[in-house]
């Protein structure tokens, strides 16, 4: 059995694992980040419903990590079909930056988003400053996405 898998398309299985891993990590991180911001945001809206739009924008920011994970997972899935063992392993590794950095940065970004919602609660006009602070964290997820895309492209 093991020999069969080894001789045939274990590479494909590995790639599938890589895609799953990548999205599992990034997706759950994004969910966590968004939910953190959402919880605090609902409190702010309960006090002043006119702040819905700025709160919504801030809440949506940590969701991009999920999208990045999705994109990389999709690119990996696109590679599936007669992959060799090395290629399969490479794809697992290629998915990791978007996955792991996505997971961690989404949670951290969620924390900054929560703090920025605090800004909005006091002064809606300063929303953009909060957005910029929150986006600072995002840069690393973007780098991770790029590295992943470039690595997937090389396999």
């Amino acid at each position: 059995m093991f020999k069969y898998v080894l001789e045939n398309n274990l590479g494909d299985v590995l790639a599938i694992i890589g895609a799953a891993l990548c999205f599992l990590l990034a997706g759950s991180g994004a969910a966590k980040g968004v939910s953190m911001a959402g919880k605090v945001g609902s409190g702010v809206i309960a006090e002043d419903s006119s702040k819905f739009v700025p709160v919504m924008i801030l809440e949506a920011l940590p969701s991009t990590q999920g999208i990045y994970g999705f994109v990389v997972a999709f690119l990996i899935i696109g590679k599936v079909g007669g992959l060799s063992l090395e290629q399969g392993f490479s794809l697992i590794i290629a998915g990791l930056p978007a996955g792991v950095v996505g997971l961690i940065s989404a949670i951290f970004q969620g924390q900054v988003a929560v703090a920025s919602i605090g800004i909005v609660a006091k002064r809606s006009a300063d929303m953009v400053k909060g957005v910029v602070l929150t986006l600072m964290v995002e840069l690393f997820a973007i780098f991770a996405l790029l590295i992943s895309i470039l690595m997937v492209g090389k396999v």
Partner: peptide, 14 residues
Amino acid sequence: YSRLLAMGLATGVI
């Protein structure tokens, strides 16, 4: 500015 690529790709792929 690499985000120009990343965000663009995300739209296209989705």
